[in-house]
Design a protein around this nucleic acid. Sequence first.
DNA 1: GGGAGGTCACTTTTT
DNA 2: GTGACCTCCC
Length: 881
Amino acid sequence: MADPAKRDPLEAAAAPAPAPGGIAARAALAARGGESYLDDLNPEQKEAVETLDGPVLVLAGAGTGKTRVLTTRIAHILATARARPAEILSVTFTNKAAREMKQRVGGMVGQAVEGMPWLGTFHAIGVKILRRHAELVGLKTDFTILDTDDQIRLLKQLLAAEGIDEKRWPARVLAGLIDHWKNRGLTPEQVPAGEGAVFANGRGKKLYAAFQERLKVLNAADFGDLLLECIRLFRENPEVLAQYQRRFKYILVDEYQDTNVAQYLWLRLIAQRPAVNTAVTSPRLRGEVDARSASGEGAPGLIETPPHPDPLPASGEREREALPMATLSPPKNICCVGDDDQSIYGWRGAEVDNILRFDHDFPGAKVIRLERNYRSTGHILAAASHLIAHNEGRLGKTLRTEDVPGEKVTVTGSWDSEEEARSVGEEIEELQRNGHLLDEIAILVRASFQMREFEDRFVTLGLPYRVIGGPRFYERAEIRDALAYLRVIHSPTDDLAFERIVNVPKRGLGDATIQLLHDHARKRRIPLTEAARAIAATDELKPKPRNSLRMVIDNFDRWRARKDSLPHNELAEIVLDESGYTEMWQNDKSADAAGRLENLKELVRSMEEFENLAGFLEHISLVMDTDKAEGVDAVNVMTLHAAKGLEFDTVFLPGWEEGLFPHQRALDEQGRAGLEEERRLGHVGLTRARRRAKIYFATNRRTHGLWQTNIPSRFLDELPEGNVEVTESKGAFGGAGNHGASRFDNMTAFGSNYSTPGWQRAQANKSRGGFSETGAPRYGDKGVGDDSLDHVDPIYDEDAPPGPPAGSSRRSAKRAGGPLTIEGELVAKSTGATSDFSAGDRVFHQKFGNGNVIAVDGNKLTIAFDRAGEKRVVDSFVERV
DNA sequence: GGGAGGTCACTTTTT
DNA sequence: GTGACCTCCC
């Protein structure tokens, strides 16, 4: 895309936008057919769109049309010709949000917009700015962006160089610390001494400094740097900053409650009016900056101490921090949209405080509340509002709806997590029978390990589902390897990439050889590829590794020579072939090898969409997600975090137990703040639902391989009585309901077994009071004193707590035939039962359609379905074609 | 240098 | 229970 910014670096001379409200503007408006896009807005939304001057904070509750306001606001700015697309800075957190906004603005304004060059994620915009002024922060324009993987590998090297035991002080912990500091806008010098000392006996700070130095040598930046270095750039080069301050006439920020300190500082710098309308720095600004750095810890010229690294800094400090904004100039046209009640990323550095004190930072800010909810029915909204009302630190909004009351929110207790999954499965099947789309159903869990139980259940039922989130495409090892090859071709100085693949596939270049290369490279201050070239020309290596190395170098030379004459996707194909990488996976006999090859193909395919290799690499380092085309109607399974911004007709919320939700760790580590964030998470979960919200809790759950008894979540007691209905678990067999299949179904054939470890553990727990202290009998807890203990199903769960016997999932195992043993594990894993299918078979599945068996594990098959992707399915559910 | 077995941890996750 | 990662031994 053409970068308009490049055309007019000091765009002050660009054609002025027509005066607001002037004749030209009105004419432009009339030409576009009036302000019809404003017609469908409610008064608050309209106000949020039309209040264009000065700072505006839009507090947009869940489902109140937040994205709509943002996009309409942009459309309005453009339609009234107050600014051109390139003069609007619009930041989001995720690529998805950016894409969506771009699309919607495009849809509204049509061809009039030649794209919005400054609409994107904080990081994408950060890189764009940084690349233009890279040399001012010690980088070159083509610096590489390191992902977490590279970052950790680099830190490992540093730790090794420092002689620090990586076992005791893991690189990933250090990576976490550094990330955290960067999120707070702290350069190494600014890290408070005490904090810098926590790692490796006081060496944390020093390691951070060393890491930054190393990054510069490698001409690389990690994600945090994309913002931090940008801030440094602005601080140290006021004329550069002024250029952007002048450029952006309007600033819009999405999800403001999720901004961290670094993002806040970045925004605040850009949102100030340029000190003077020339490239010369205003003495006033200078003075201000110097005074501030002198008052902080940093030396002049360094980034100032961030205003609020602590959750709740003293109010005096806050006001001091708010001063520059007020004293320097009237605040700019910045519009932040967010919802303090949906702030759920505190753990990764988000500062709810940013939104809570918006009007301190931007004096004279107009605060507009969007409280009319267009999504959920009355009961759901009431439940969500009532829950969140228990939080103290909030700005306060009262959501209202004009929708019908609808169904009450249900709360269902189940004996264990398996019954929970069974129960949810049954409800879903019932909804499906009544014509409910599976796409419109979501299961929102607190922690990803909860997903497994549901997946297992759905596989058994043959219920299509998709997991949202999870390991992403570009994070897979094979994709990273392939990218590393391309990175080395693109920039021969990319040491980390080179190191990653120099011995992948195995070429006999082990640690010893790599170490030699490293030493050589460090001594001469040259990149690894060059060191390799030099070493290969000497006899320092034994013939075998030397030849291998020679071969690698020759390969890269050859590929690089063809780089410009060949379409980059063809080049990629050649590289993967000639390097032996494809072959490596072809020879790999593990079950997922085929999938990896498929992923590589997909990677090559996706390259087509980019103009060149550089463009592609830039894209993937920033956009780590792929939009998987959906298409099959399927239940959505994801974490509560991943659900933010989405909505579904029916939402299942399992696992509302103390310890899991609210999560124990959140409570331990963050105390009250942690509890409030968990509660916001609950609020987010409930407000995802349009028509039905169904909460579950299980008395027993297996965590870390051990069964644990939990009490229902305190959040259940915080729901309003009148909007909630307590129901009986549909997945239960026996108990008060006693519906459906008999609990004795599976009994007689196998008898009970009192000698299994699970039984004995249960007894032990019982006598210790473990299982019996389950609390909240009103939710249908069947209790342990129940005679059903006698009927413990010994087949599946040697470790299961005593409880109602198995449901249909167990029967399906029985159907599989083969030697059933009483060792639960055997049946669960089905290692004993052998399937008469084998890899390569073409099969048909009722729900998933046709596919090929890739692997067989007992009676469970891994099948690559033509349309539904890879699934694990019990063999009795498929037939040969 | 590479496979096999032992040890460790384990909430959430974007860029 | 499980997977990732590291170490040990061939």
